[in-house]
Simulated scan of single mutants.
Amino acid sequence: MSKAVESTKTLRDELERCRTALAVERSNARSKVWRAAIQWGALLAIAGFVYRAVRSLAGKLTLADIDVHGSAGFGGAALHLMTSCATTEILGLAFGASGIVYGLLQQKLRGDVIKKYYPYMEQEQKAVDKDRTSSLLMPGGGTRPEDI
């Protein structure tokens, strides 16, 4: 009799787990639907605003005359310098070089952090399983020379 009661209890627990899993899946499905609805709704709203802006100008002759004049402290020479091709090339080079330097510094920082925590990771792996080896990366996180 106790096996039947235990079996019934096990089945009830399994049924409860299944109901919980089903509720979680339904919730995930609802959130995916809402996320898609919001994304597509925003896209349609933007398209509607663009359509209304273009429709209001349809068939009309428009002329935009934008003139920039130098003001006090911002003379014509400074304006010419800001708009010259050489300035934009120098700015582009500066942004590109700063991006490369940033990437190299991030790579060095990542290597330093790996070097700092590598012994702890190895110690934790050995505590779980004495025969376990790491992913055979170098202590700095790099690939072994023989794997290249």
Rank of each mutant, 00 (worst) to 15 (best):
Y118Q: 05
Y117A: 11
G103E: 07
D131A: 05
Q106R: 14
Y120I: 13
G103M: 07
L109C: 10
Q107A: 15
S134G: 00
S135N: 02
L104K: 10
Q106E: 15
Q125I: 08
L109W: 13
S135V: 03
Y117T: 06
Q107C: 13
S134I: 03
Q123M: 13
D129P: 04
D129L: 01
K108Y: 08
Q106D: 14
Y118G: 01
T133Q: 03
K126L: 11
K108A: 10
D131R: 04
K108T: 08
D112E: 06
E124Y: 13
L109A: 08
G103Q: 14
R110T: 10
L104T: 07
A127H: 12
M121Q: 13
D112M: 03
L105H: 02
D131L: 01
D112S: 12
Q123S: 14
T133Y: 07
R110C: 13
E122Y: 05
Y120L: 15
Y118A: 04
V128R: 02
I114H: 01
Y117I: 12
E122P: 01
G111A: 09
D129N: 07
K108M: 11
V113G: 10
D131H: 05
Y117H: 11
V128H: 06
Q106L: 15
K108G: 08
A127W: 13
L109D: 04
Y120P: 14
S134R: 01
S134M: 01
Q106C: 14
K108C: 09
K115V: 03
G103I: 12
Y120D: 14
T133R: 04
D131V: 02
T133V: 02
Y120Q: 14
E122A: 04
Y118K: 03
K108E: 11
Q123C: 11
M121E: 12
A127K: 11
L105Y: 09
A127Q: 09
D129C: 00
A127G: 12
T133G: 01
Q123P: 01
S135I: 00
A127V: 06
K115Q: 09
E124K: 06
E124A: 09
I114D: 03
T133C: 02
V113S: 08
M121N: 04
S134Q: 00
Q107H: 07
I114N: 03
Q106I: 14
Q123Y: 15
Y117W: 12
P119C: 02
D129V: 10
M121Y: 07
D131S: 05
Q106K: 12
S135C: 00
S134V: 01
K126H: 04
E122H: 01
Q125K: 08
L136W: 05
G111V: 05
K115M: 08
G103P: 07
Q106T: 15
M121K: 11
Y120V: 13
R110S: 07
E124M: 12
L136R: 02
G111N: 09
K116W: 06
Y117V: 08
L109G: 09
Y118D: 02
L104E: 07
